[in-house]
């Protein structure tokens, strides 16, 4: 049975993304290690991007390519975005899912998808 159910479906699909996006974004904006990177962004646009990112990390439908990730973060890499900041985002992602009572094995899968973008995000 579980073989035919995708990660995205197990997590609860779009409803789960909607539940997670505000919690995740609040954590990121409250996190002093990384919130300066979000000082100048338009919040509504950023929330849409967070939703697209979470949809991807949840194994859902997305059009993100490694190239998009590189282009989207290149200006932040110039400002000093590095592994420690990436770690902080992944940590906030995990904490969001814990708060939503997502089982640990699914959190690990989400974190792994998030992790797979590290080199593109950091422009390596």
């Amino acid at each position: 049975m579980t073989e035919t159910t995708t990660l995205y479906e197990q997590l609860g699909g779009e409803a789960a993304v909607n539940a997670a996006v505000d919690i995740f974004y609040r954590k990121v904006l409250s996190d002093h290690r990384i919130n300066r990177f979000f000082d100048d962004v338009d919040m509504a646009k950023q929330a849409a991007k967070q939703k697209a990112f979470l949809t991807m990390a949840f194994g859902g439908p997305h059009n993100y390519t490694g190239e998009d990730m590189r282009k989207g973060h290149a200006h932040l890499v110039k400002l000093g975005l590095d592994d420690s900041h990436f770690d902080a985002v992944i940590e906030n992602l995990g904490a969001t899912l814990v708060e939503l009572n997502v089982p640990q094995e699914l959190i690990a899968q989400v974190a792994a998808i998030g992790e797979s973008t590290r080199n593109d995000v950091l422009g390596r």
Partner: peptide
């Protein structure tokens, strides 16, 4: 905007 969001208001 940021303060309101962190105080619990939804972005929409």
């Amino acid at each position: 905007k940021r303060q309101a969001f962190l105080k619990g208001s939804a972005i929409q």
